[in-house]
Nucleic acid binder design. Structure first.
Length: 485
RNA sequence: GCGGAGUUAGUCCAGCCUCGCAGGACGUCAGCUUCCCAAGCUGAAGGUCGCGGGUUCAAAUCCCGCACUCCGCACCA
């Protein structure tokens, strides 16, 4: 199924929809999750916690979304998270000043250079608009961070453009108070904000979005000393380097040099195991090693985890070896000590980051699991049972003869333990199909036999088959079926 | 931001050229019927026709501006 099918499902069934849509001045790039979407998101995040945070004994924090100016001076975002932009006076087309200068004058100007530098070269080299040959206006910087004014004096602060800055600035306290030992993973789920020039395609490019980030702090001398690497040594990962696609175990990837060390390989292995369990089609996924030009300004080694969708390859996770860039930057700026003891030696930890886009991941899960069952004339969302927004539908075959009351009774018993949905109205087939469409794996139906022998039918979403089970066994059957892997 | 195409009920769309009662299908809700897979019948709810202005006796329809969406370009640390 394609983007449009997912979009239709999202709007009709309450997965997600545009923010502030009743007002004409609603800005693009802001979306809301409806009830079904929130339930899916919560379950996805619980899986993330199980497979990464708890498995690797990471610490999870929840930091502020608004952070002071110093944070972004130290992180480099104020200088580097901005593009030098020039605009044609005639046709109003905008260009990246640095890219245009490289293209037309073959002069490399760093994008963080003073803004007058760009104007100077444009005048000297007589650079004109490539579309209409018009003259350019003065260059200006477009910073992708949202600025906010704090208090009556409107002291400048910023909405964080990535959640991880909280983790870096909190690192000294966390390491001391949480009895930290390298390697130490610190995780966070939260919102980040980027003033995208042209947000597009609903959840795929947002101005306000969720990230689930993990920063692993490590001793750079010990990137190949990692006992727990054995847990993933046979885990298969798909990886693309310089346009050639390879499918290797983590061990093979390290030995062949495709991945530089066991440390990075371990986390790529964990991530791969995690996504396998989300129901994303791993045959349509890859880790892609980024070239020097594609990497972010702070990254030394970078792999993107990408998934193929009907809109093209989509980056879901950025895995960056950020070296000592972040802690070094904050240490210099704040004068706080970031070195820690490892084997009685003081080290400034290096950082490996696993920065996951939650919204894009949820979209990919929906697209990869939505299918049209033509034979039975239905749309089915074949989610893993543990990710299903509604675990189980509780239905009465008909309302009369006391079946409605009996059905209510069963619903009352399980509604606090499971995400259950009670439905009495309309044809039974229609009710099954509605549940199929939002990915509900099971439907319990109360029929006339229930009143005689205390049994109900349980219907499986994917096969449309039914078994009869005792009401007394319902809880144990359901809890087994919807358990996380 | 540029170019093109769009915006009408929850969803998809007709109506626009040539101003003249706000429509259809699906979905939703209620009732009847059937009683295990979107059947049928009856009824109902749901719209500032993207927003603002103009022209006109009269604007979803013509004109202007803006916003948003999609496609392409550019952008995406």
């Amino acid at each position: 199924m394609n983007y449009d099918n997912v979009m239709k499902l999202a709007l009709e069934r309450g997965f997600y929809f545009p923010s502030c849509e009743i007002y004409p001045d609603a800005q693009a790039g802001f979306w809301e999750y409806g009830p079904v979407g929130v339930s899916l998101k919560n379950k996805f995040l619980e899986l993330w916690r199980r497979e990464l945070v708890r498995r690797d004994r990471m610490l999870e924090i929840d930091g502020s979304q608004i952070m002071c100016k110093s944070v972004f001076e130290a992180s480099g975002h104020l200088a580097s998270f901005a593009d030098p932009i020039i605009k044609c006076k005639n046709c109003k087309s905008t260009f990246r000043a640095d890219k245009l200068i490289v293209e037309l004058a073959s002069i490399e100007v760093p994008e963080s250079a003073p803004i007058e530098e760009f104007d100077k070269i444009i005048i000297e080299k007589k650079i004109r608009c490539t579309k209409c040959s018009g003259e350019f206006d003065k260059a200006h910087k477009f910073n992708m961070m949202f600025k906010v004014g704090i208090g009556p004096e409107e002291e400048p602060a910023y909405l964080r453009p990535e959640t991880c800055q909280s983790i870096f600035v909190d690192f000294p306290r966390l390491f001391k108070t949480m009895r930290g030992k390298l390697p130490l993973g610190i995780a966070q789920i939260g919102k980040s904000f980027r003033n995208e020039i042209s947000p597009r395609q609903s959840l795929l490019r947002l101005r306000e979005f969720y990230q689930a980030e993990i920063e692993v702090f490590c001793n750079p001398k010990k990137l190949n000393e990692l006992e727990k690497f054995s847990e993933v040594k046979d885990t298969v990962i798909r990886i693309q380097v310089n346009d050639s696609q390879k499918t290797l175990t983590c061990t093979e990837a390290v030995e062949s040099g495709v991945i530089p060390n066991k440390f990075v390989a371990y986390y790529l292995g964990l991530l791969s195991e995690f996504y396998e369990k989300t129901g994303i089609d791993m045959k349509k996924s890859r880790f892609r090693k980024l070239s020097d030009k594609e990497k972010a300004f702070y990254a030394e080694i970078a792999f993107d985890f990408e998934v193929e969708t009907t809109t093209g390859w989509l980056e879901l996770v950025a895995c960056n070896y950020r070296s000592g860039y972040d802690l070094g930057g904050h240490s210099n700026k704040s004068k706080e000590k970031f070195e820690v003891l490892d084997d009685n030696e003081k080290v400034l930890p290096h950082v490996f980051e696993i920065s996951m886009g939650i919204d894009r991941s949820l979209y990919s899960i929906l697209e990869h699991n939505l299918r049209e069952d033509k034979e039975n004339d239905r749309i089915v969302l074949s989610l893993k049972p543990y990710l299903a927004p509604i675990h189980v539908g509780i239905l009465s075959l008909v309302k009369k003869d006391g079946l409605e009351e009996k059905t209510d009774e069963i619903y009352m018993k399980i509604k606090t333990k499971y995400d259950a949905f009670l439905d009495h109205s309309g044809a039974i087939g229609r009710r099954y199909r509605r549940l199929d469409e939002i990915g509900t794996p099971f439907a319990i139906t109360v029929d006339h036999q229930t009143l005689q022998d205390e049994t109900v039918t349980i219907r499986m979403r994917d096969q449309m088959s039914q078994n009869r089970i005792k009401i007394s066994e319902l809880d144990s059957v359901l809890s087994k079926e919807i358990a996380y892997p």
